[in-house]
Design a protein around this nucleic acid. Structure first.
Length: 265
DNA sequence: TGTTATGTTGCCAT
DNA sequence: TATGGCAACATAAC
Protein backbone atom coordinates (compact mmCIF):
# COMPACT_ATOMS: atom_id res chain seq x y z
CA UNK A 1 0.00 0.00 0.00
CA UNK A 2 2.88 2.33 0.77
CA UNK A 3 3.43 3.64 -2.76
CA UNK A 4 -0.12 4.86 -3.09
CA UNK A 5 -0.75 6.00 0.47
CA UNK A 6 2.45 7.51 1.86
CA UNK A 7 2.57 11.21 1.05
CA UNK A 8 -1.09 11.25 0.04
CA UNK A 9 -3.59 13.59 1.62
CA UNK A 10 -7.13 12.60 2.61
CA UNK A 11 -9.44 14.68 0.42
CA UNK A 12 -12.77 12.99 1.02
CA UNK A 13 -14.41 10.59 3.48
CA UNK A 14 -17.41 8.48 2.52
CA UNK A 15 -19.39 6.34 4.95
CA UNK A 16 -21.59 3.50 3.74
CA UNK A 17 -23.92 1.45 5.90
CA UNK A 18 -21.92 0.96 9.09
CA UNK A 19 -20.63 4.19 10.65
CA UNK A 20 -19.61 2.20 13.74
CA UNK A 21 -16.53 1.09 11.80
CA UNK A 22 -14.78 4.22 13.12
CA UNK A 23 -15.76 3.55 16.72
CA UNK A 24 -17.47 6.06 18.98
CA UNK A 25 -16.94 9.07 16.73
CA UNK A 26 -19.82 10.22 14.58
CA UNK A 27 -19.15 10.27 10.84
CA UNK A 28 -18.98 14.07 11.03
CA UNK A 29 -16.45 14.03 13.87
CA UNK A 30 -14.27 11.44 12.13
CA UNK A 31 -14.43 13.31 8.83
CA UNK A 32 -13.47 16.56 10.56
CA UNK A 33 -10.52 14.95 12.31
CA UNK A 34 -8.95 13.17 9.33
CA UNK A 35 -9.76 15.43 6.37
CA UNK A 36 -6.65 17.17 5.12
CA UNK A 37 -4.30 14.82 6.96
CA UNK A 38 -1.35 13.40 5.04
CA UNK A 39 -0.05 9.86 5.56
CA UNK A 40 3.62 9.75 6.50
CA UNK A 41 4.23 6.13 7.48
CA UNK A 42 2.61 2.71 7.60
CA UNK A 43 3.59 0.52 10.50
CA UNK A 44 2.53 -2.82 11.91
CA UNK A 45 2.71 -4.67 15.22
CA UNK A 46 1.40 -8.21 14.95
CA UNK A 47 -2.00 -7.91 13.30
CA UNK A 48 -2.38 -4.26 14.33
CA UNK A 49 -1.86 -1.67 11.59
CA UNK A 50 -0.84 1.94 12.08
CA UNK A 51 -1.21 4.54 9.34
CA UNK A 52 0.55 7.59 10.75
CA UNK A 53 -0.18 11.18 9.74
CA UNK A 54 2.72 13.55 9.15
CA UNK A 55 1.69 15.97 11.90
CA UNK A 56 1.26 13.21 14.51
CA UNK A 57 -1.64 10.86 15.24
CA UNK A 58 -3.09 8.55 12.62
CA UNK A 59 -5.40 5.64 11.88
CA UNK A 60 -5.34 2.37 13.77
CA UNK A 61 -6.72 -0.51 11.70
CA UNK A 62 -7.54 -4.07 12.70
CA UNK A 63 -9.06 -6.44 10.15
CA UNK A 64 -10.19 -8.99 12.73
CA UNK A 65 -11.82 -11.96 10.94
CA UNK A 66 -13.05 -10.64 7.62
CA UNK A 67 -11.72 -7.12 7.17
CA UNK A 68 -10.20 -5.92 3.91
CA UNK A 69 -8.22 -2.80 3.08
CA UNK A 70 -8.53 -2.07 -0.62
CA UNK A 71 -7.01 0.48 -2.94
CA UNK A 72 -9.50 1.45 -5.60
CA UNK A 73 -9.64 3.96 -8.41
CA UNK A 74 -12.02 6.90 -7.98
CA UNK A 75 -15.47 5.95 -9.18
CA UNK A 76 -14.86 2.26 -8.55
CA UNK A 77 -18.04 0.49 -7.58
CA UNK A 78 -18.66 -0.04 -3.88
CA UNK A 79 -16.91 -3.20 -2.75
CA UNK A 80 -19.01 -5.93 -1.13
CA UNK A 81 -19.40 -5.03 2.57
CA UNK A 82 -17.57 -1.73 2.10
CA UNK A 83 -18.10 0.60 5.07
CA UNK A 84 -15.63 3.44 4.61
CA UNK A 85 -13.73 5.06 1.77
CA UNK A 86 -10.99 7.70 1.95
CA UNK A 87 -10.33 9.65 -1.25
CA UNK A 88 -6.61 10.38 -1.53
CA UNK A 89 -4.62 13.02 -3.41
CA UNK A 90 -2.55 10.23 -5.02
CA UNK A 91 -5.37 9.24 -7.37
CA UNK A 92 -6.40 6.28 -5.27
CA UNK A 93 -9.16 5.60 -2.78
CA UNK A 94 -8.52 3.59 0.37
CA UNK A 95 -11.57 1.49 1.25
CA UNK A 96 -12.33 -0.65 4.28
CA UNK A 97 -14.73 -3.58 3.82
CA UNK A 98 -15.73 -6.14 6.43
CA UNK A 99 -18.46 -8.74 6.20
CA UNK A 100 -18.72 -9.45 9.91
CA UNK A 101 -18.10 -5.86 11.11
CA UNK A 102 -15.65 -6.92 13.84
CA UNK A 103 -12.79 -4.83 12.47
CA UNK A 104 -12.28 -1.10 13.00
CA UNK A 105 -10.59 1.96 11.51
CA UNK A 106 -10.00 4.20 14.50
CA UNK A 107 -8.52 7.67 14.72
CA UNK A 108 -5.82 7.34 17.38
CA UNK A 109 -3.47 9.83 18.97
CA UNK A 110 0.21 8.92 19.04
CA UNK A 111 -0.24 8.21 22.74
CA UNK A 112 -3.12 5.82 22.11
CA UNK A 113 -1.07 3.94 19.53
CA UNK A 114 1.92 3.81 21.85
CA UNK A 115 -0.27 2.35 24.59
CA UNK A 116 -1.73 -0.24 22.22
CA UNK A 117 1.69 -1.13 20.88
CA UNK A 118 3.01 -1.54 24.40
CA UNK A 119 0.46 -4.28 25.04
CA UNK A 120 1.65 -6.39 22.14
CA UNK A 121 4.27 -9.09 22.55
CA UNK A 122 7.53 -9.57 20.64
CA UNK A 123 7.57 -9.82 16.85
CA UNK A 124 8.36 -13.46 16.11
CA UNK A 125 10.36 -12.67 12.97
CA UNK A 126 12.60 -10.14 14.72
CA UNK A 127 16.05 -11.26 15.84
CA UNK A 128 15.06 -10.22 19.37
CA UNK A 129 12.57 -13.10 19.45
CA UNK A 130 14.86 -15.76 20.84
CA UNK A 131 14.19 -19.21 22.22
CA UNK A 132 15.37 -17.92 25.61
CA UNK A 133 12.72 -15.17 25.51
CA UNK A 134 10.05 -17.73 24.70
CA UNK A 135 11.25 -20.02 27.47
CA UNK A 136 11.02 -17.26 30.06
CA UNK A 137 7.57 -16.08 28.99
CA UNK A 138 6.20 -19.64 29.04
CA UNK A 139 7.54 -20.53 32.46
CA UNK A 140 4.99 -21.63 35.07
CA UNK A 141 1.95 -20.93 32.92
CA UNK A 142 -0.85 -23.43 33.23
CA UNK A 143 -3.03 -22.64 30.23
CA UNK A 144 -2.83 -24.74 27.05
CA UNK A 145 0.04 -23.85 24.74
CA UNK A 146 -2.54 -23.10 22.06
CA UNK A 147 -4.08 -20.37 24.26
CA UNK A 148 -0.60 -18.98 24.93
CA UNK A 149 0.17 -18.72 21.21
CA UNK A 150 -3.11 -16.92 20.52
CA UNK A 151 -2.45 -14.36 23.28
CA UNK A 152 -1.12 -11.30 21.45
CA UNK A 153 0.55 -10.04 24.65
CA UNK A 154 2.83 -13.07 24.66
CA UNK A 155 3.80 -13.27 20.98
CA UNK A 156 2.59 -10.92 18.26
CA UNK A 157 0.68 -11.94 15.20
CA UNK A 158 -0.17 -15.62 15.62
CA UNK A 159 -3.80 -16.47 14.85
CA UNK A 160 -5.76 -19.70 14.88
CA UNK A 161 -4.38 -21.01 11.59
CA UNK A 162 -0.70 -20.38 12.31
CA UNK A 163 -1.02 -21.62 15.91
CA UNK A 164 -2.25 -25.01 14.72
CA UNK A 165 0.32 -25.17 11.93
CA UNK A 166 3.21 -24.27 14.24
CA UNK A 167 2.21 -26.82 16.88
CA UNK A 168 1.92 -29.52 14.23
CA UNK A 169 5.37 -28.75 12.86
CA UNK A 170 6.80 -28.75 16.38
CA UNK A 171 4.98 -32.04 17.13
CA UNK A 172 3.35 -30.61 20.26
CA UNK A 173 -0.21 -31.41 21.32
CA UNK A 174 -2.16 -28.08 21.45
CA UNK A 175 -3.70 -28.89 24.84
CA UNK A 176 -0.36 -29.29 26.61
CA UNK A 177 0.11 -27.04 29.59
CA UNK A 178 2.40 -24.19 28.52
CA UNK A 179 4.71 -24.54 31.51
CA UNK A 180 5.16 -28.26 30.93
CA UNK A 181 7.11 -27.93 27.68
CA UNK A 182 10.80 -28.77 27.92
CA UNK A 183 13.61 -26.82 26.29
CA UNK A 184 13.79 -29.06 23.24
CA UNK A 185 10.07 -28.65 22.61
CA UNK A 186 10.25 -24.88 22.99
CA UNK A 187 13.19 -24.78 20.60
CA UNK A 188 11.15 -26.71 18.03
CA UNK A 189 8.18 -24.40 18.61
CA UNK A 190 10.36 -21.33 18.14
CA UNK A 191 11.59 -22.62 14.80
CA UNK A 192 8.09 -23.68 13.75
CA UNK A 193 6.46 -20.34 14.57
CA UNK A 194 8.98 -18.50 12.46
CA UNK A 195 8.71 -20.97 9.59
CA UNK A 196 4.92 -20.95 9.28
CA UNK A 197 4.74 -17.16 9.45
CA UNK A 198 7.59 -16.69 6.98
CA UNK A 199 5.99 -19.09 4.53
CA UNK A 200 2.61 -17.40 4.94
CA UNK A 201 4.16 -14.04 4.13
CA UNK A 202 6.03 -15.42 1.12
CA UNK A 203 2.72 -16.75 -0.20
CA UNK A 204 1.07 -13.41 0.53
CA UNK A 205 -1.40 -14.70 3.09
CA UNK A 206 -3.78 -17.55 3.84
CA UNK A 207 -6.97 -16.88 1.91
CA UNK A 208 -9.70 -19.27 3.05
CA UNK A 209 -12.54 -17.06 1.89
CA UNK A 210 -12.22 -13.33 2.52
CA UNK A 211 -8.62 -12.27 2.92
CA UNK A 212 -7.21 -10.25 0.06
CA UNK A 213 -4.43 -7.73 -0.27
CA UNK A 214 -4.91 -4.08 -1.18
CA UNK A 215 -5.00 -5.01 -4.88
CA UNK A 216 -7.74 -7.56 -4.27
CA UNK A 217 -5.34 -10.48 -4.80
CA UNK A 218 -5.76 -13.69 -2.84
CA UNK A 219 -2.89 -15.24 -0.89
CA UNK A 220 -1.88 -18.78 -1.78
CA UNK A 221 -0.88 -20.13 1.63
CA UNK A 222 -4.10 -22.14 2.07
CA UNK A 223 -2.53 -24.80 -0.16
CA UNK A 224 0.46 -24.93 2.20
CA UNK A 225 -1.54 -25.83 5.32
CA UNK A 226 -0.84 -29.25 6.82
CA UNK A 227 -3.55 -29.52 9.50
CA UNK A 228 -5.73 -26.42 9.78
CA UNK A 229 -9.29 -27.17 8.68
CA UNK A 230 -8.46 -30.82 7.99
CA UNK A 231 -9.59 -32.54 11.20
CA UNK A 232 -11.82 -35.44 10.20
CA UNK A 233 -11.13 -34.74 6.55
CA UNK A 234 -7.58 -35.85 5.84
CA UNK A 235 -4.70 -37.94 7.13
CA UNK A 236 -1.34 -36.77 8.41
CA UNK A 237 1.19 -36.62 5.58
CA UNK A 238 3.92 -37.74 8.01
CA UNK A 239 2.34 -40.74 9.75
CA UNK A 240 -0.92 -41.43 7.96
CA UNK A 241 -3.09 -41.00 11.08
CA UNK A 242 -6.48 -39.41 10.51
CA UNK A 243 -6.24 -35.75 11.59
CA UNK A 244 -8.57 -34.68 14.39
CA UNK A 245 -10.45 -31.57 15.42
CA UNK A 246 -11.07 -30.57 19.04
CA UNK A 247 -11.89 -27.30 20.79
CA UNK A 248 -9.06 -25.75 22.82
CA UNK A 249 -9.03 -22.18 24.11
CA UNK A 250 -12.49 -21.86 22.62
CA UNK A 251 -11.19 -22.32 19.10
CA UNK A 252 -11.37 -25.12 16.57
CA UNK A 253 -8.04 -26.90 16.86
CA UNK A 254 -6.66 -29.30 14.29
CA UNK A 255 -3.86 -31.76 15.00
CA UNK A 256 -2.37 -35.19 14.32
CA UNK A 257 -2.89 -37.59 17.25
CA UNK A 258 0.02 -39.69 16.01
CA UNK A 259 2.62 -36.92 15.79
CA UNK A 260 1.39 -34.60 18.56
CA UNK A 261 1.31 -36.62 21.76
CA UNK A 262 -0.26 -35.39 24.96
CA UNK A 263 2.89 -36.15 26.95
CA UNK A 264 5.71 -34.46 25.14
CA UNK A 265 8.78 -35.73 23.26
C1' DT B 1 -35.49 -24.87 7.59
C1' DG B 2 -32.58 -25.31 11.67
C1' DT B 3 -27.80 -25.90 13.55
C1' DT B 4 -23.05 -25.17 13.52
C1' DA B 5 -18.85 -23.38 11.98
C1' DT B 6 -15.83 -19.45 10.54
C1' DG B 7 -9.70 -16.18 10.14
C1' DT B 8 -10.30 -12.01 16.52
C1' DT B 9 -10.50 -9.69 20.49
C1' DG B 10 -12.46 -7.47 24.69
C1' DC B 11 -15.24 -7.91 28.56
C1' DC B 12 -16.80 -10.29 32.38
C1' DA B 13 -16.83 -13.80 35.99
C1' DT B 14 -14.23 -16.79 38.71
C1' DT C 1 -2.99 -11.81 37.97
C1' DA C 2 -4.34 -15.83 35.27
C1' DT C 3 -7.69 -18.23 33.01
C1' DG C 4 -11.97 -19.46 30.56
C1' DG C 5 -16.46 -18.45 28.37
C1' DC C 6 -18.96 -15.68 25.47
C1' DA C 7 -20.69 -11.84 22.59
C1' DA C 8 -20.14 -8.85 18.61
C1' DC C 9 -21.90 -10.16 13.19
C1' DA C 10 -23.02 -12.24 8.48
C1' DT C 11 -22.77 -16.05 5.80
C1' DA C 12 -21.85 -20.85 4.16
C1' DA C 13 -22.08 -25.61 4.78
C1' DC C 14 -24.21 -29.38 6.72
Amino acid sequence: MSDRVIGATIESVTFRDFPGVVGELSPEQFTGLVSGETFERIDRRGKHLWLAFDGGDGLFVHLMMTGQLLLLRPGAERARFEHLRLGLSSGWELAYADQRKFGRVLRYSDQQWAAKEGQIGPEPLDTSFTTALLVSSMRSRTSPIKAFLLDQRKVAGIGNIYADEALYRARIYPGRSTGSLDDAEIERLHVAIRAVLQEGIERRGTTLSDYMDADGARGTNAANLRVYGKGGKAVCEECGCPLERVVIAGRGTHFCPGCQHDEGR
